[in-house]
Every structure is written in structure tokens, then in C-alpha cells.
Amino acid sequence: MTLSYELPLLLLLLLTACAAVLVKDLISAVLILGSYSFFLALVWAWLGAPDVAFVEAVVGAGLATVFFLLTLLSTAPKDTHIRRHAPPKAAMLLLPLLAALLLYATSDLPRFGDPQSPASVHVSPHYLKNSLADTRTTNVVTAVLMDYRALDTLIETAVVFTAGIACWLLLRRDVK
């Protein structure tokens, strides 16, 4: 956890995000979004979250890009919007306000990587200390996901199933 490669990673993240929204060709935008997801996976690995990095690389960078590309290949792959509208006044007023508010609130958060931050001293030590005895799993993330919070994971699969049904209903060809 050194600052030497953290800032270049975050800069690459911001760069790819801006490129993805600025590029006119939608297929290029989607591919740049895929590279953004891969940089995000690197950030997770640096923050000590390998499980999140795997899921981001497979589901975020892989599956989401494939969904985008499939949609674009069956529709219009160009952003044909020629006329430039002035952005809505409410957005120009409220977004800088939100930015100032969020950056002001930043100073109240605990320092980055503080072991005594409130999130790390409340219930998470309990899971770290007892998960091996309770579940016989050395990976604490797996233990919480599949044992302590197994019902959440079950309902998550129900959400994915519902999404699949919704996609099928939307995309079937023989609609009366």
C-alpha cells in the first residue's frame, strides 16, 4: 500500500472514464469502458480485495462489455446526435454544489487505511476472529458470503433469475 503506483492507477481510471463518455463511436466507448473495468480490478487488488477484483474482471469487464456489444450490434453503433443542447441549468447548478459538499465532507472521514476507522472496529473483527472456528473456511469473504449471509446470496440469485426472465420477455421476437 504505497503511494508510488496508487496515483497513476487512479489517474488511468479517471482517464478511461472520461474517454468512454467523450468518444463518439459507441463501440469504442464500450471497449474503453471494458478497459476502465480492468483498471478498476487492479485497484481492488491493490486495496486488498482479490475476490472483488475477480468478480469485477469477469462480470464487470467481461459480461457487461459483451452485453453492451450485443445490444450495439443489433441496434445503431453510432452516436448520431448532431445538435448540441445546452446542458440543463439545474444540472449545472446542482452538480458543482454536490461536488463541493462531498469534498467538504471528505475531511470528516477517517484517513485512508486507518486500522481504527469506525467501519473496521465494529463487527468486522468478530467475523475475522470467529469465521475459522464457525465455518472451517480460511477465506473470510467466502465464509461471510456463503455461510453467515447465505440467505442474502440466495435472494441475489433470485434477482439475477428475475433479470434473466425480464430480458427474455423484452427480447422475444413473436410478440403478438
Binding site: 486488498g48 480485495a49 482479490p50 485512508f112 487505511g113 486507518d114 486500522p115
Partner: peptide
């Protein structure tokens, strides 16, 4: 959730 000097869970 990050802690400096800590490793993966």
C-alpha cells in the same frame, strides 16, 4: 474497508 499494512482477508 482498507487498512494500511494489512493483507487480503
Amino acid at each position: 474497508g482498507a487498512k494500511s499494512g494489512a493483507t487480503v482477508p
